[in-house]
Design a protein around this nucleic acid. Structure first.
Lengths: 218, 218
DNA sequence: ATACTGACTGGAATTCGATTTTGGTCAACA
DNA sequence: TGTTGACCAAAATCGAATTCCAGTCAGTAT
């Protein structure tokens, strides 16, 4: 439940580190988790393993996270958080709106692919153990992503580049169309080669974007 | 391995039933399988159960299928075969090519949804047991579907309704975009309400089709 | 105080051998 | 000639003994 992103009332700036104790340690825990997930998978990775890998005591983990499950879910959260940063970066670049959306769609697929392809065989394990928690967050992830996409859509419409009715519906459709390429239930090996996934994402993106382009421009 | 679809050299027409013994029985076995999958799931359903439900002896199952796994995979094959019939039906209707594709996309999603929503909780079980076999067939299913879609695409282009480069790439993109709504790894309950799934499929289809429409028509 | 730790605990997971179930075969049967 | 169900080996299941580990908290260090 501790979310370093949410900044509520920075009451005492000099004591920020105390309010959310040592974000450096928190990140070290998540880094360790990433390495160990790749090496052992979810079930065989113990909390003591994580602590040792991070160079801290086991109890310290519980000062930052409420449970082992929460550690791993936060790790996934961090991946998505970084993805969102990347998406916002692309969203505010100076390419055409269509080019930005295209790159954003490719990125949302490939960033996830790259983030978890390290632990391929252990993914099923993780998924089986955390399915309920992950499904709950999936919806939140998509919603957050949709907002970023919607902004670019609106900008593209203002400039006359795009033509569409509802930006939220359209944003969700864009995400939905690429969801089949996300390694949520199919592992990265089952999805196919990276290059092939990229090609498929690209083909889908091209077709969708063609549908967005304003009829008047051509 | 016994595939009633593949018609190789119908040597003796009067003995067809002997070459592929009693397709009626075969269908009865698959019908029984469908009912029992819903009731018990894959693992708890025994071959003897199937035989009893179909009103035949256990050994008879093995005159039609090489293994229990093959029985269930053939059951899935039959679902897809029926779906393809439905798709071809729509493909040859007299609506506009866009309307046909739209309906075909909705159908490929909802037909699957309806076909397996009976056995929701037992789906994970089935998926875990048959994953390798199912993944292998998935590719074949998509390929076969893509062909039907490609035909409609070509017709739409001939009539000037559509504009696109490669019909196979485009057909695959259409399928890929709706794959995320198929109950392959996510069960029907995890996908959401039927109406919601329908809405999402519809939104995606609309956007994709918008991209196909020829620029000249508007 | 405050930040951290690791020994400790109960419940969960694993192991392993005994027992039961079941996928697949085939000799007998209709 | 087509069908069957008793039969067999392999797999699944069970259950008790054992190990393991997530989470706690008294204690240490700072």
């Amino acid at each position: 439940m501790v979310n370093s992103q949410a900044v509520e009332r920075p009451a005492n700036l000099s004591k920020m580190a105390a309010i959310a104790p040592k974000p450096v340690v928190k990140d070290a825990i998540l880094d360790a988790t990433d390495r160990l997930l790749a090496r052992f998978g979810y079930r065989k990775m113990t909390v003591e393993d994580i602590a040792a890998e991070a160079g801290i005591g086991k109890g310290t983990i519980y000062l930052h996270f409420s449970s082992k499950e929460e550690v791993v879910l936060s790790h996934v959260d961090r991946i998505v958080e970084r993805l969102k940063d990347r998406l916002r970066e692309i969203a505010s670049s100076d390419a055409t709106a269509a080019e930005r959306l295209r790159l954003m769609l490719l990125t949302r697929v490939l960033f996830r692919f790259d983030s978890i392809q390290h632990y391929t065989q252990s993914l099923n394990d993780l998924l089986a153990a955390l399915r309920p928690g992950l499904l709950a967050r999936r919806a939140l992830y998509f919603e957050a992503e949709a907002e970023i996409f919607a902004e670019v859509l609106v900008i593209g419409r203002q400039s006359g580049e795009f033509s569409f009715d509802d930006e939220h519906v359209t944003a969700h459709a864009l995400l939905q169309a690429t969801n089949g390429l996300l390694p949520y239930s199919l592992s990265t090996t089952e999805l196919g080669e990276r290059a092939e996934v990229e090609q498929r994402a690209s083909d889908v993106a091209n077709l969708m974007l063609q549908g967005l382009l304003s009829r008047t421009t051509s």
